[in-house]
Design a protein around this nucleic acid. Structure first.
Lengths: 163, 163
DNA sequence: TCAAGATTGATGCAGGTGCATCGAGTGCGG
DNA sequence: CCGCACTCGATGCACCTGCATCAATCTTGA
């Protein structure tokens, strides 16, 4: 029952893979050269920073970030080691815990957004008109089998007053 | 001199990252469940199989696949360990070598294309019309800073006689 | 012709990821 | 109340990646 994909679909697939890895590489390199940790750290700090009281259950973080459980667990280890977050006991469920972002964590997240947003502008914004960016998003969404909400970085709001 | 990216660019960036990793995961899972090795092996076997006499210098493979040198070196190790390729001495440059695909390698590459093409159809082809796939390719290309040729898998030709 | 520099490919090390599994704790059905 | 299935989070292992560096060889230019 397996049909061959069209050459158009195959071509789109190949470009998706290659362009993404290339652009991601560029952005990660820029961050690294500016002395920052990997993007995954930023994502985690961002999620924590926008949680109601700066804390989340690891399992929530895992679902927000769409990464596997063990990966979350070890990412938290690293954040804690660096003093960017701390573990707090969870009284209502003794299996669990809360992870709370520290001041250092919030501060790093903000500083990273400076470099990160500049990289997005450099590698995406400057190459695509807003209209084309919207078209690209729309097409990608169709591939994203129940891909969830796709929240924007919180800082985007700072530059876009109206909602 | 760093401008903030538009929310549209940021949104496109986020979707690009998330959709790609999601779709890639799905495809890799399908291949793994069918008992096949990772996609990188397929890419290498494909490049080798379409080289003039089934052999390439590692440095060529590296440039085709856009992966770092040490990565190529170890990928070749694994292919050789599995009997999918073999190293041959390079008489004209004693530093170098040739890597030649074996019959087992060619055969695996063909079998993998069966599962691989089915996965592309399932996760990309079935979700996008040909016209939309072309639009997506075009938009992605604009991000692909001097991204090179983007060759299609050779098997595509088997199903598309006219060029 | 020969020294300096570039290129080819391998490798030790540190760290990240996937997988399987584990121990602890919860909650539900009987 | 008990037991069983499930959820939460951690961890040992294998493997893979990035980085730095190495030895061998080639190339260039004085």
């Amino acid at each position: 029952m397996k049909r061959k994909p069209s050459t158009e679909a195959t071509s789109a697939w190949i470009r998706l893979m290659r362009v993404q890895s290339r652009v991601l590489d560029c952005v990660e390199q820029d961050l690294k050269k500016a002395g920052f940790p990997p993007l995954a750290w930023y994502d985690a700090l961002l999620e924590l920073s926008r949680a109601p009281s700066g804390e989340l259950r690891p399992v929530e973080l895992e679902r927000q970030m769409l990464i596997p459980q063990y990966s979350t667990s070890r990412l938290i280890d690293r954040l804690v080691d660096e003093g960017l977050a701390c573990r707090r006991e969870c009284k209502i469920d003794k299996r669990g815990q809360f992870v709370e972002i520290t001041e250092a964590g919030r501060e790093l997240q903000k500083r990273m957004w400076g470099a990160y947003s500049a990289a997005i502008e450099k590698y995406v914004g400057s190459k695509l008109s807003d209209a084309d960016a919207v078209k690209l998003s729309g097409l990608l969404d169709r591939l994203g089998c129940s891909c969830g909400e796709m929240k924007l970085p919180v800082h985007v709001n700072e530059t876009t007053p109206s909602r």
